[in-house]
């Protein structure tokens, strides 16, 4: 599949690798390029996913997650980059408020992000720059005491 995207596209990506991120910063500072961050790739959103952002009020996001957890058995809290702290904070708060009825399980990943560099002058080619950022995915789930008891009885 990627073979079809040879030519201009691949060469530009090679170039972008050659240029370190530092040189791009210089270019941006010189006002030759304008930085435009693309949206990180999202998986199709399930009902139980909560993506944490720093731009929405924390209490609001907490409430949303809490409400979801009331109707569902588990909620996935995702945080990317600077929002990781928030995601952890949110998951922990849900846990403490539940008085031991909720457990959390976290795992981390790396997300590849793409930035577009838009030239500000006529004679420059557009560039892309890819970088990695860390992400956290926290599964917040109920431990159902009723089910556990039943299981115990059967065994």
């Amino acid at each position: 599949m990627s073979a079809n995207f040879d030519g201009t596209s691949k060469s530009s990506s090679v170039e972008s690798k050659e240029k370190s991120s530092k040189s791009f910063k210089e270019l941006i500072d010189k006002e030759e390029y304008d930085l435009r961050k693309r949206l990180p790739r999202k998986l199709p959103k399930r009902k139980t996913d909560v993506y944490i952002t720093r731009k929405t009020d924390f209490a609001c996001q907490l409430e949303r997650a809490q409400k979801l957890l009331d109707s569902e058995n588990e909620v996935y809290v995702h945080g990317l980059g600077a929002a990781i702290n928030r995601a952890i904070n949110l998951a922990l708060q849900i846990q403490t408020e539940s008085q031991g009825l909720v457990e959390i399980a976290a795992h981390t990943s790396t997300v590849e992000l793409v930035d577009d560099l838009e030239p500000q002058t006529d004679d420059l080619e557009p560039e892309t720059q890819s970088r990695n950022n860390s992400a956290i995915h926290i599964k917040v789930y109920k431990i159902n005491p009723v089910k556990v008891e039943l299981k115990d009885a059967t065994t």
């Binding site: 030519g7 596209s9 990506s13 790739r41 590849e112 892309t128």
Partner: peptide, 16 residues
């Protein structure tokens, strides 16, 4: 299904 298409989209659009 999702994982496959990622590479293609990240690259720039070619003239073709």
């Amino acid at each position: 299904m999702v994982v496959e298409g990622i590479e293609a989209v990240k690259l720039m659009v070619s003239q073709e």
